[in-house]
Structures are given as C-alpha cells and as structure tokens.
Write a protein that binds this DNA or RNA. Sequence first.
DNA 1: CCCGAAGTGAACCGATGCGTTTACATTCCG
DNA 2: CGGAATGTAAACGCATCGGTTCACTTCGGG
Lengths: 206, 206
Amino acid sequence: MADGSDQRKRGRKFDQVRDGAREVFLSAGFEGANVDDIARVAGVSKATIYSYFPDKRLMFMEVVRFECQRQSDSAIAAIDMAAPVRDLLLYAARTMLAFMTSDFGQRIFRICVAESERFPELAQNFYDSGPAVVRNRLTEFFAEATARGDLVIDDLDLAADQFHALCKADIFDRMVFAQSQTFTPAEMTRVAEGAVATFLARYGAR
Amino acid sequence: MADGSDQRKRGRKFDQVRDGAREVFLSAGFEGANVDDIARVAGVSKATIYSYFPDKRLMFMEVVRFECQRQSDSAIAAIDMAAPVRDLLLYAARTMLAFMTSDFGQRIFRICVAESERFPELAQNFYDSGPAVVRNRLTEFFAEATARGDLVIDDLDLAADQFHALCKADIFDRMVFAQSQTFTPAEMTRVAEGAVATFLARYGAR
DNA sequence: CCCGAAGTGAACCGATGCGTTTACATTCCG
DNA sequence: CGGAATGTAAACGCATCGGTTCACTTCGGG
C-alpha cells in the first residue's frame, strides 16, 4: 500500500544516494569511506544525504540491508533436483567460484571481515541472505540423492560444508594472501572439477 | 659483533613498546589502533615511542615482521615422514585447526584481510612465514607417500590445497560469518576426521 | 657522585572527517 | 503562477588522532 512505490518520505534522490554510498562503502569499507566522497560520487550535496540518514552508520546499514535483499532475491537460483549428480555438483561448484571471485564477492567478503567488530550482525545477515540459501538447497539435494541411492552421506551438513570448502581450495588463499584478483577459466575449472572428483570419491555411490 | 644482544640503538624499553604495539594492533587493527593507547598499554610515554619509530606505519611493520619471524621459527614443526598416512593427516588437520581457531590465528587473519590495501605484502609475508611452510612440508610428504604407493595423487598442489580447505569446512564460515570464537574439541574432531576421511577416499591407495 | 643518555607528561599543532547551519536555488504540483 | 518541499554550496563547529616540542626527571656507567 502507501503511495505506490514505497517512496515514503524519500526524496527524489534517494536512490542516487544509496547507490553512491554502495559504491564508496564497497570499495573503501566503513571507516575508509568519506561522507564528502559519497556526496560527490552520488552527485548530491552533503545536506541531502543527512536529510535521508541521521548518520553515517545508519546509512551503511541501509546499504547493507538493501544489498542483502538484492542478493537474497537473486540467490533463489533454481537447482534442478532431478539432474545427474555430477552435473549438478559441477554447476554448483562453478556458481560458487564465480561469485567468490567476482568483484562484488571479494569486496563484500573483505567488508564482512573488516567490520565484524563494529557491525556484528553484518556478516551473519549477508551469509543468511545468500550463501546460506545455496547451502540449504545443496543439503536438501544431498538428502534426496542419498534417499535415491545416488549418494551415500551420513553427515549431510558436513558434506555440504566440505563441498563448499573444496570449491575454495587454492583460489581462496591466493585471493586473501597473494592479492590475486582474477583467475583464468582454466584455473577455475581445475579447482571445480577437482572438488567434484574428491567429493564423489567420498560420497558417490559405488 | 655489535654489543652482544642486537640492541643497536634501541633503548631499554624497546621490547615494552613492541609488545604493547603488538597487543593493540592485533586487537584493533592498524587504523583502529591509537598511538596514545599503545603508549598507555606499553607503559611508556608517546615521546619514547616516537624516539624508536619514525611513524605509526613503520611501527606496525616492525610488529608484523617480528611476529612473522616468531611464527616462522616455530612453524618448523617436525612432520614425521615415516608415520602412517592416516595418523599424519589427522595430526596435520588438528594442528591447522588449532592454529586457525586460536585467538592469534583469528586476529592475524582479520588483520591480513582488513589491511590488505594499505599493506599489500603483509598477507603474503605472513602466509610465507607460516602456512606456506606447512603446505610445502605437506606437499613433500604427499610426493613421498605417492612414490611409496601409499597415496595416489596426480596434482600434488591441488591435493595439498584441498586438504587444507577440508580442514576449514564448517569452522571457517562459522568464524567469519557467525562470529563464533570458540569451538569444542568434539566439533574440531568431527571436522578433522571428516577431512581425513574425504581426502583418503579420493587419494588413498586402494 | 656526576653527567649524559633515556624517558616523562602534558601541552600543542595541523589535518581529517562527521555532522550542522544558513542563505539560496530548483522542482513539483495544485 | 505561486508557494511549499526538496536540494545546493560552502562555511563552520567540534572531536579525534598522528606527530612534535619542551621543561623536567630518572637511570646507569665511569
């Protein structure tokens, strides 16, 4: 209800502000982001910003909330429950790798870690609105595949976590410790296929 | 040479300063650390600090350098090349998990991620002075075990990375996204044994 | 015991950055 | 058109924090 597009008290430039804030926060973190920069990037005056948000902290929280919402909406990526196990796993591995190595994935991860003291629920909210959805879907699939006899899994949660972990092998450490930002398709294929092979060696039906 | 204990120009309170800086930097990060706090924690005046270090940045780098050195010295933990494969893997898994979940491990990881822009070589130096040592040792062991016929590994590096990744399953996400700081022995045993089981399912000789 | 080196504590400087204010412009809508 | 809501630009107050200075005290070796 309300006035048709959920504008409430937001002025005409609300989206500009939020998008500018998103860009600056994402690339500089909370502490590193400068409100004057946000105003400049958003193409808006600082007074306008402060007419929307009482302070920088709440502005940050709104950006995060909105971003989690966006992610949540798009994370409902269908997983074809009937697909062959190996195909599905490979698809899931590639999807996770693609997100993890994406610019957004890297930045949001860094922010979650860096601001975990200042914003304790940030990381949890982010995780719940995306990665957790995928993980639950995967667990669900594992349960069905186990029931069908395609997989043999005793600890479903551990299996899901192991698969996720296997997908990060090599790539993750290089991202964090060697500041590699880009990875070739070949590198990602090697890791994804390796993850599937190891996972199936343990949990595949003989 | 020099004067017996490598004191160079360092005054009597050099260690106090470095230890205080270590404590504050480790718990607050570089930006979050306040020089007056460091002085207070070190039990020293600010002027003394600035008689040792030209600025905060170099003080931070000295702390990191020293800490990497310490880690490097203690990371040469012996790995018994002749031990049964399963025992060795379980021991390695427990060791990695213990470090990763330790207070120091968690803090240093957070700093590496948070300050990677400001100090690009920080993460690399840290990694090289500890985790890389263990990883290389493990790769070496895998090569020998493969030569002996105890393991069947085609891509040694990927195998090492996968093992490392498997050891972080579940635990890592809970640390980063749910801010869990402590884990019960049972939780760590579950993950460690799961990692070894999955790894051997793929790479163990039949 | 003496003297120079090391350390102290507190005030101070300058930069940065959040948030406010004010005087003015633009936009929207009846 | 006309007035109210929305936005602008720039200056300002104020707190924080890195780094300096200075007058004074403490320490330690000859």
